[in-house]
Design a protein around this nucleic acid. Sequence first.
DNA 1: AAAGTATTTAGACATTTGTCTAAATATATA
DNA 2: TATATATTTAGACAAATGTCTAAATACTTT
Lengths: 87, 87
Amino acid sequence: MNALFKALNDSTRREILELLKDKDLTAGEIADQFNISKPSISHHLDLLRQAGLVVSVKEGQFIYYSLNTTVMDEMLKWIISLQSPKK
Amino acid sequence: MNALFKALNDSTRREILELLKDKDLTAGEIADQFNISKPSISHHLDLLRQAGLVVSVKEGQFIYYSLNTTVMDEMLKWIISLQSPKK
DNA sequence: AAAGTATTTAGACATTTGTCTAAATATATA
DNA sequence: TATATATTTAGACAAATGTCTAAATACTTT
């Protein structure tokens, strides 16, 4: 869960996930949404991929990124488990 | 949500939350569970409090910490909103 | 009032993080 | 094959983070 919380602990990365909610995007299309250099966005995408939150597929010159939310299941379970009644 | 994700992005702090799930504990009782100095634990507790995840109440010499999970509602909603169908 | 216990504050330090520019890699097109 | 486009890799750097020890604060007990 470490990589997951780490990936989510940045507002740019959370915004990237929100963008991918609607549709898959190329690295360039994602970068265009931010005032941050492309290498920096590439690095953010790498962290998101390490966490399993996105998947990348190469199509010719482009690399398409898509959202994968299933990896959050364990995290959701953990959060909900905290909410069980106290003693 | 920034402070919340930041607070959760550390395994020691997540363990502290798990300890508090069962019962309220004093700062010292919490510190006793870790191989980390008391000042460091105090700092972790401060970050958890900043995020609203714990509440502290002074009782004489002791300070009791308790878990507050309600602040995670917004975060849970955000996570679940990501899972809505694409396109 | 003095000494002991509980906790935090202050300040230092190494590591991690987010960002940048420059360069490398890979694909497409003229 | 040469040039343009898309993306990443490499390396640098300032800021943030987690940890520590020493000292300060607050309460309790003798």
